[in-house]
């Protein structure tokens, strides 16, 4: 990961003119932004504004109708199947529900990406999986099945799986959703720790103000009516300086701007 970073000065993510939609109906238009390496970047906005849609189009779960997404300088949207598969190794994703494979233990869940992309032996894979689970505070739960652990633990296990291949970028889709404030805060701390330890670029989709102000280096705010970005910058700067009432209202937790 470090080699790639030093040899390639391009930003971690470049999104240019992205247009997202479902069934021919546009949800987002002309989305352009960049995310620097090692940055914690939040995509924020009210419910239904297209935050998760943008994320799903960025990681290739849906095909954008226009525009490009580049990871570490390489176009992901225009890449052929083989190149795209290679690029998938550069990022990990934590889904809203954790999305652990229910028929596999946590160890196997975390180990599966390693089985797919490496030639490591089973013993080595198990060792790495144990290490990753330990990093997210799930040491000792390696042989548990997803149904046997709590929601917060599922998210942490999902994060361990996302980190299995030591990706340069990790995407989080609503990491705090369904978690109590204490567990949510612990997850935030974990995200910060990952960035500080590995220099990982973090992209988070969220509308949790506490996480946004606590973690985000920079945010973009999406708006449903606008079908695009209405603000970009540091959250505290936006709170202090934004003249857009939609931004101030959102960042003040629904209070009308003064």
């Amino acid at each position: 990961m470090t080699d790639t970073l030093t040899s390639n000065p391009a930003p971690a993510i470049e999104v240019a003119g992205l247009e997202c939609g479902y069934g021919g109906k546009p949800v987002l238009k002309n989305i352009s932004f960049t995310v620097g390496r090692g940055e914690i970047f939040f995509i924020i906005g009210g419910s239904g504004c297209g935050k998760s849609t943008l994320l799903r189009h960025m990681v290739g779960l849906h095909t954008p109708t226009a525009g490009t997404v580049k990871f570490l300088g390489q176009s992901f949207t225009l890449a052929d199947t083989a190149a795209r598969r290679g690029m998938l190794k550069t990022f990990g994703m934590l889904f809203q529900s954790g999305a652990l494979w229910s028929s596999l233990t946590l160890r196997r869940n975390v180990g599966l990406p390693l089985e797919e992309y490496t030639t490591l032996s089973r013993r080595e894979i198990d060792e790495i999986a144990g290490l990753k689970l330990g990093q997210v505070g799930l040491g000792g739960f390696e042989d548990y099945y997803p149904a046997e652990i709590s929601g917060g633990m599922k998210k942490r296990a999902g994060l361990a799986r996302a980190l299995a291949l030591d990706p340069a970028i990790v995407f989080f889709d609503e990491p705090s959703a369904g978690l109590d404030p204490v567990t949510s805060r612990k997850l935030d701390e974990l995200i910060r720790q990952i960035r500080e330890t590995f220099g990982t670029t973090i992209v988070v989709v969220s509308h949790e103000l506490a996480s946004i102000f606590d973690l985000a280096d920079r945010v973009i705010m999406l708006d449903r009516a606008e079908q695009g970005i209405i603000a970009e910058g540091r959250p505290r700067d936006l709170l202090a300086n934004s003249r857009d009432p939609r931004v101030s209202e959102f960042l003040r937790r629904g209070d009308k701007p003064l």
């Binding site: 799903r56 889904f95 999305a99 797919e116």
Partner: peptide, 16 residues
């Protein structure tokens, strides 16, 4: 059920 729980998406994102 796996699709509803995003498990299939998780496979796709990993390129499996």
């Amino acid at each position: 059920n796996m699709k509803a729980n995003e498990e299939i998406d998780a496979l796709e994102v990993l390129g499996i």
